[in-house]
Amino acid sequence: MGFHWKWDFTWEILPRLLEATLNTLIAAGAGYAIAIVLGLVLALAQRTPYRALTFVVREFVEFIRSTPLILQIFFVFYVGPQFGVRMSPWTSGMIAIGLHYSAYLSEVYRGGLNSVGKGQWEACTALNMSPRQAYTRIIIPQAVPPALAGMGNYLVGIFKDTPMLSVIGVAELMHTANAIGSESYRFLEPYTLVGVIFLAISLPAAGFIRVFETYVRRKLGLK
């Protein structure tokens, strides 16, 4: 056995892998959408004056961050049905990965929200704004730019973690590469292609995030 790359096989499997890439992108996008919204809820819940709520949410975030994603995926998919929650691999996968990343994103938001100075809150009070108005009009818009770099990191992170969904049978890129391998007994080409595809998406995405960050700052008139 030596290094033996087959180009005709490569071209043969490429369309199938590209099709699976679309599923990977959908999984990453859907998971991220859940994480972005839920993460904000988790971050804001830790800023309420209700001590008990703050405590429970804080512990929840720590729990999620301290346990492996793959365990959470298995848990939702296999343990869920024992409690009568029966969901498809896709639904379970999206919930697990969305929940996992919402914990990380809540920390990013928390940092962003804390970076807005006390004086801004005082100005909101002096203008008699409600807490809701203060958050939506003044505090969150200023918390976004410092949070963007972290948010971008986790967007790439969630994309790279989608292969874990293959363990519960979500037909994303990794799952498809495995299937090709076990059908043809050739693993070199499919796995190499998976790596190349991930690289080809991750690298430009990171660059795009940096450009987007500058754009948002300028748009908001911030330095």
């Binding site: 801004q120 100005a123 002096a126 008699n128 818009p141 200023q142 008139g221 911030l222």
Partner: peptide, 17 residues
């Protein structure tokens, strides 16, 4: 509070506006 207005040492203008 609507009857009271205040100016601060460090202005506290909203930087994104």
């Amino acid at each position: 509070r609507s009857q009271i207005g205040m100016c601060f040492q460090h202005f506290n203008l909203f930087p994104h506006m």
